[in-house]
Amino acid sequence: MLEGKVKWFNSEKGFGFIEVEGQDDVFVHFSAIQGEGFKTLEEGQAVSFEIVEGNRGPQAANVTKEA
Protein backbone atom coordinates (compact mmCIF):
# COMPACT_ATOMS: atom_id res chain seq x y z
CA MET A 1 0.00 0.00 0.00
CA LEU A 2 1.11 3.51 -0.81
CA GLU A 3 0.25 6.65 1.11
CA GLY A 4 -0.55 10.02 -0.38
CA LYS A 5 -2.70 13.13 -0.13
CA VAL A 6 -5.64 14.12 -2.26
CA LYS A 7 -4.51 16.84 -4.68
CA TRP A 8 -8.08 17.52 -5.83
CA PHE A 9 -11.33 15.61 -6.23
CA ASN A 10 -14.44 16.65 -8.18
CA SER A 11 -17.38 14.95 -6.46
CA GLU A 12 -19.76 15.93 -9.29
CA LYS A 13 -17.64 14.14 -11.89
CA GLY A 14 -16.47 11.44 -9.47
CA PHE A 15 -12.72 11.61 -9.97
CA GLY A 16 -9.54 13.41 -9.00
CA PHE A 17 -5.84 12.92 -8.30
CA ILE A 18 -3.70 11.79 -5.38
CA GLU A 19 -0.22 13.26 -4.78
CA VAL A 20 2.53 10.80 -3.88
CA GLU A 21 5.90 12.17 -2.80
CA GLY A 22 8.57 11.44 -5.39
CA GLN A 23 6.10 10.04 -7.96
CA ASP A 24 3.64 11.26 -10.55
CA ASP A 25 0.12 12.10 -9.38
CA VAL A 26 -2.25 9.12 -9.48
CA PHE A 27 -5.76 9.22 -10.98
CA VAL A 28 -8.55 8.17 -8.60
CA HIS A 29 -12.16 7.30 -9.51
CA PHE A 30 -14.93 7.31 -6.89
CA SER A 31 -15.53 3.57 -7.45
CA ALA A 32 -12.05 2.86 -5.97
CA ILE A 33 -12.94 4.49 -2.62
CA GLN A 34 -13.62 1.93 0.11
CA GLY A 35 -16.45 2.41 2.60
CA GLU A 36 -20.17 2.98 2.78
CA GLY A 37 -22.27 5.95 1.74
CA PHE A 38 -21.34 8.81 -0.58
CA LYS A 39 -17.86 8.20 -1.94
CA THR A 40 -15.86 11.41 -2.07
CA LEU A 41 -12.47 12.73 -0.98
CA GLU A 42 -11.42 16.12 0.39
CA GLU A 43 -8.44 18.13 -0.86
CA GLY A 44 -5.42 17.47 1.38
CA GLN A 45 -6.95 14.33 2.90
CA ALA A 46 -4.46 11.52 3.68
CA VAL A 47 -5.24 8.23 1.96
CA SER A 48 -3.66 4.83 1.44
CA PHE A 49 -4.12 2.92 -1.81
CA GLU A 50 -2.72 0.50 -4.36
CA ILE A 51 -1.82 1.32 -7.96
CA VAL A 52 -3.31 -0.74 -10.80
CA GLU A 53 -2.99 -0.34 -14.55
CA GLY A 54 -6.17 1.18 -15.95
CA ASN A 55 -7.29 1.89 -19.52
CA ARG A 56 -5.46 5.23 -19.51
CA GLY A 57 -2.49 4.35 -17.34
CA PRO A 58 -1.90 3.94 -13.60
CA GLN A 59 -4.81 4.57 -11.26
CA ALA A 60 -5.59 4.17 -7.57
CA ALA A 61 -7.45 1.12 -6.25
CA ASN A 62 -8.65 0.12 -2.77
CA VAL A 63 -8.47 3.72 -1.56
CA THR A 64 -8.97 4.10 2.19
CA LYS A 65 -9.15 7.35 4.14
CA GLU A 66 -6.58 7.72 6.90
CA ALA A 67 -7.74 8.83 10.35
Rank of each mutant, 00 (worst) to 15 (best):
H29I: 05
D24Q: 14
G22N: 12
Q59M: 11
S11N: 12
D25K: 05
G44Q: 07
N10A: 08
I51Y: 07
G57R: 09
F27A: 02
F9L: 02
T40D: 07
L41K: 01
R56F: 15
N10F: 07
K13N: 07
N62D: 05
E50I: 09
Q34G: 10
A61G: 08
L41A: 04
E3K: 15
E50A: 12
E3W: 15
V20S: 08
S48E: 08
L41M: 07
E12H: 14
G22A: 08
Q59C: 04
E53P: 15
E42Q: 12
K13M: 10
G14W: 02
E43L: 15
G22K: 08
V47M: 02
E53T: 13
F27P: 03
F15R: 03
F9R: 01
L41F: 04
G37H: 06
G35S: 09
V26M: 05
D25F: 05
F15A: 03
L41E: 01
V52N: 05
G16C: 01
N62Y: 09
S31M: 09
K65Y: 14
G4P: 01
F17M: 07
Q59V: 10
E66S: 14
G22E: 07
K65C: 04
T64D: 08
L2F: 13
N10K: 09
E50C: 05
V6E: 00
W8T: 03
L41V: 05
D25S: 07
W8P: 00
I33W: 03
D24P: 15
F17L: 07
V52P: 02
L2P: 04
K5W: 07
E43D: 13
G16M: 01
S11M: 11
A32C: 04
S48M: 12
H29E: 03
K39R: 14
G37C: 05
N55P: 15
G22Q: 09
V52H: 10
R56S: 12
V28I: 10
A32Y: 05
V47S: 01
Q23V: 09
G44Y: 06
D24N: 12
N10S: 13
L2V: 12
L2H: 12
E66H: 15
E12N: 15
A61F: 11
E3G: 13
L2D: 04
D25A: 07
M1Q: 13
G35Q: 11
S31N: 07
G22L: 06
F38I: 09
K13A: 09
G14E: 01
N62L: 08
Q45W: 14
D25C: 05
M1K: 14
R56W: 13
E53L: 13
T40A: 10
F38E: 07
E66M: 15
F15E: 03
G44T: 05
A46G: 09
F38H: 13
V6H: 00
F38W: 13
S48I: 11
V28T: 04
F15Q: 04
N62I: 07
V26Y: 05
V28F: 12
P58G: 06
G35W: 09
Q45D: 14
D25W: 07
N10R: 10
V20I: 13
S31C: 04
G54P: 03
T40C: 06
F27R: 03
Q23T: 10
G16E: 00
G4D: 00
N10W: 09
K5D: 03
T64H: 13
G16P: 00
F15Y: 14
E21K: 15
A46C: 05
K39F: 06
G57A: 05
V26P: 01
E19S: 14
N62M: 11
E3Y: 15
E43N: 13
A67K: 14
Q34C: 05
E3T: 15
Q45C: 05
E36I: 07
T40G: 08
Q34D: 12
F9D: 00
G57Y: 05
F15D: 01
F49S: 00
E36R: 09
W8V: 04
I33Y: 03
E53I: 14
K7T: 05
V63K: 00
A60T: 02
G14R: 04
E21H: 14
A60K: 01
K13S: 08
V47A: 03
